[in-house]
Design a protein around this nucleic acid. Sequence first.
DNA 1: AACCAGGACGTGA
DNA 2: TCACGTCATGGT
Length: 244
Amino acid sequence: MSAIEEIYQRLLAGYGHQGWWPLLDCKGTNPTKTGSVRGYHPGDYSYPQTERQRFEICVGAILTQNAAWPNAEKALLNLKSNGMLSPHAMQRAGDDTIKEYVRPAGYFNQKAKKLRIFAAFYLSLRGVVPARDGLLKVWGIGPETADSILLYAYGIPEFVVDAYTRRILISKNIIREQATYGEIKALLERELRKDYCIYQECHALLVEHAKRCYARSQYGEDALLKGLSSGEECTKKPRCHRYI
DNA sequence: AACCAGGACGTGA
DNA sequence: TCACGTCATGGT
């Protein structure tokens, strides 16, 4: 079993199904999670079930860029309660209106602009699934946001690499510190079965584990992944031993 | 009261 | 390519 596969198995056994991506109108909760527990649907990979939910996930992916989810969620609620959680409404709305709604998510000037540009792009799709390079050409959509949209809004097996994933894999000596987004993504997609459910679950589990054990200032035990066999990708010792 | 969160873009070497 | 500055609110 590869190191990646072992990480996935251990985290799933330890934490259980995470139920990503969170949705505002989703009844389910995940009590095992840290932080916000609302909107998750553990073990149910049938979301999004409506076009509105699909768009909500896209918007959430932009709003959560370098921001804590509860803050992005507040912005999402503002948009929804003002009828702005649809691509048409978002495109029509004035810039200042959107800015006021997304303020809690931070970077409100940039994110308001990103949302209106994305809304136009989303409408131009007319229901067609976007290509990854198409998404990347949209201003405000980088690699992680593109993969989040594809994986969680469209159920396409594109692994999402975030700062947490990178931090865990570096500390486990599985990748080098300079590893690029594409390298990490390729590694995970090589080691895991190409299945959007597994990609979603694995990414969510890595985030949950990192929140518990790999926070910058306060770090925990990492008992679940103790003594993990390091992959052959890199033999260099990790520089930061705090994370082990 | 700093520090940081589920990044992306613009710029200059 | 790549390292670095910028964008901004809210929780710990």
